[in-house]
Every structure is written in C-alpha cells, then in structure tokens.
Amino acid sequence: MIELTLALGIGFLVGSGIWLLQRPRTYQVIVGLSLISYGVNLFIFSMSRLRSNVPPVVSSGAINPADYADPLPQALVLTAIVIGFATTALFLVVLLVSRGLTGSDHVDGREPN
C-alpha cells in the first residue's frame, strides 16, 4: 500500500511537472522542473525498495547488509538534490536575464501574436 501511495505521488509530481513544462510562462517552467526533479529523485530513491527505520548507518561489529536500507540510490539522489538546486538557480537567472532583455516573461522571449 505504501508503495502504491508513493507511486501515485511520483506520478502526480511528474505529471504536474510535464503539464507546466509545456506552459508559455518561464515561471511555470521553473516550477514544473522543480516538481519533476522531486518526482525523479523519489523514483531513483524508490529503486532501493521502501523500508522504514533501517537507515544505512552501520553499527560496530558484524554487519548484516539485509539490516540496512540500500545506500547507493541515496548517495545518487543526494548529489542530484544539490545539482538540481544549482540548475534551478541557473534557470532562474536565465529567466530573469531574458525577462530583462526582452521585456517579456514568455519562454520565447516575445508575446505570441
């Protein structure tokens, strides 16, 4: 059940993001990209299967890998979050410079006829 919930959550995040990607205003696109990045991060994270209360922080002594969550997708997602932030910032500045240069916040830099 918890899997279905998360799967639905991912679907709605990505779906909302795809809808926004196709909108004409730059601000809509940046919100859309952020939503998609949540969805994709959760998707990658879900590759480790869902388990509660087993963080990959090992104790001393003999280690049984089955006692811990898969750390690899987490490491991937961790850097993805930071890089995602950087690209959001980059897109934001492009958005603002484009708005300043063209006077329009349309994605093509000019209002449709």
């Binding site: 279905l4 998360l6 799967a7 998707f43």
Partner: peptide, 23 residues
C-alpha cells in the same frame, strides 16, 4: 498538453510501482 501530462504521470506511477513490487 493535459493528455501528455497524464500519460507521463501514469507511466511514472506504473513504472515505479512495478519496480517497487519486485525483489
């Protein structure tokens, strides 16, 4: 656009669910 978004969202749901259900 809504149709595309719905297809994309549904696809992600099915895909992630199918993966999570596998060992």
């Amino acid at each position: 656009d809504l149709l595309l978004a719905a297809i994309g969202g549904l696809g992600m749901t099915l895909l992630s669910y199918a993966v999570m259900m596998r060992p």
